[in-house]
Write a protein that binds this DNA or RNA. Sequence first.
DNA 1: GTGAAAGCGCTAACAG
DNA 2: CTGTTAGCGCTTTCAC
Lengths: 334, 334
Amino acid sequence: MKPTIRDVAKMAGVSISTVSRVMNSPESVVEAKRSRVLEAIEKLQYQPNAFARGLIYRKSFTLGLLIPDIENMYFAGIIRGMQDACVKLGYSLMICNTDRDKDRLLSYIDAFREKQVDGIVFASDILYPEYYEKLTACRIPFVLLSSHSDEFEVPSVEVDDEEAAYEAVKFLIELGHREIGMIGFNHVNSVSGPPRYEGFVRAMKEGGLTHNIERVAYAEHRFEQAYHASHELFSAHPDITAVFCVADEFAMGTISYLKDRNILVPGQVSVVGFDNLRMANMFIPKLTTVAQPIYELGYRAAEKLHELLTTGSVKVPKEMMKHKLIVRESSRQR
Amino acid sequence: MKPTIRDVAKMAGVSISTVSRVMNSPESVVEAKRSRVLEAIEKLQYQPNAFARGLIYRKSFTLGLLIPDIENMYFAGIIRGMQDACVKLGYSLMICNTDRDKDRLLSYIDAFREKQVDGIVFASDILYPEYYEKLTACRIPFVLLSSHSDEFEVPSVEVDDEEAAYEAVKFLIELGHREIGMIGFNHVNSVSGPPRYEGFVRAMKEGGLTHNIERVAYAEHRFEQAYHASHELFSAHPDITAVFCVADEFAMGTISYLKDRNILVPGQVSVVGFDNLRMANMFIPKLTTVAQPIYELGYRAAEKLHELLTTGSVKVPKEMMKHKLIVRESSRQR
DNA sequence: GTGAAAGCGCTAACAG
DNA sequence: CTGTTAGCGCTTTCAC
């Protein structure tokens, strides 16, 4: 049987209130008793019961994280960052992988509610009214990570997708490329798809290369789809010499496709990715990519949620974190 | 204010026990009242308070997962599998990433105890006496995943590392290779390091190739280290034509090194990995590798833990799951 | 400064 | 079948 506060009280020869006090406001207990209590706690390996506390405080000191695809390496970094912030702030972390399934997502929200998580980080997905309403009905505070909402007032942390994409494409143009394509996210169900395409368009317009604006093929999240999208793109526009991919995994799919077609990267075609996953540095060739501060994004999201939970609001509602172009081997001067 | 059982009772015009009954043994309540209660629950969006329940049942219906390195893609699959099993069995999942830090691990166990997780899956790490004792002292049931213990009686789920390594190496020998090296896990702090090396040795002895037994370089978990280990290995034994890597990430590091040295894979050197990560199929060249049933391993571990929790013991204490050699592009006939 | 007692939301005897 | 009641372990008034 786990020892309870009563066991400690008995061993220390005090009342349970005193034990409770040494745990919550030690200074209000005289030294002599306090040390006896501490000793008993130590000896019994006593640890307060989180259920009993939760019942009183109505807080679980645990945070929930909702992610669409745990096998996307992007989230490994997010999780690390968020968990580190959680230990710093005294929370536990409950992670749920929705596999992009709406019903699962909804049922995880129920689970979070039942477990009384104090707040939720909602990552990389569109905040549909349905989700918003459910979360609001459950009265669970939440923040958006790598996402944002124009429709609702929800705090968010992300990078500036439009600007980041713009810089990546501009880099390609400055390298001398004129025939440039893009592998993008399908715009439906994608938060970062549209702004990244906008960045692409802006760079093209600025460079007087508007004929490229339609050289886009779309994929959804995975390598294989990017492979096929590349096939589409290059079949329609064989003269392309550079492609901007909105995810490192897409860049890998594209390079793989090019390799199978015996097209050299970066010899004949330059490829730029997005995210700077750990893999970007392991791939052959190493990926030139727009780095997101992934770990920091996760860390910051937890901090922001904590701010929301403790102060009731948030200083910077829509926070943008710095991205950075990392030039490696998959791109080259034209 | 979240509605409580009392609110439901009032709205339905019954006592709180009746409400409790319709939730726990509906058949013991007459239809008329039951439907009124159900209606009230629906209308109020009532959900029982997990703290109150936990206090009574002494169960949290949440499981803990301890992993050493969330950025290792191996664990993405483990987590998916375990989480799917958890939703099937009615548990929530709490994941903690230790970053291979002993103190963190120990403090996560404390957190698990405080949160009263029902059981823990301890993944891919050696069960040091220190851990075993702490877990035992906390009276938290646990199972080992991709690990096992000779010292203590703890249920475990893993693949047969020795046999799997043996088959991989044997495959290389059958391909005609005679000068074979290995990139292994440092044996200290590694569970699967020694058996995989044993498998390597057994295949060599059987093939009369014992001169290869010492052609081994060690790395710890990461790509970069495997890259350096490869440098070591090939500097000492430039005649090697095949290398068995005990992890896909090592295989990628090795291939990367070879690429930098302008050595063709599989043209001049064949490389076999281990794990069959999702990445194995995305890398260039696609990796020949020993597939572990990663998702199933995670799934099974949760089931086994559940079995332990509900029945107090486990039918098959040390369970081995099937591995399988997948031949792709990184290996070739000598 | 410290103990007794009420009560957080729920379940499980125990009567009726 | 159903309502009343006694806790589960802890915090927090409220007296002393």
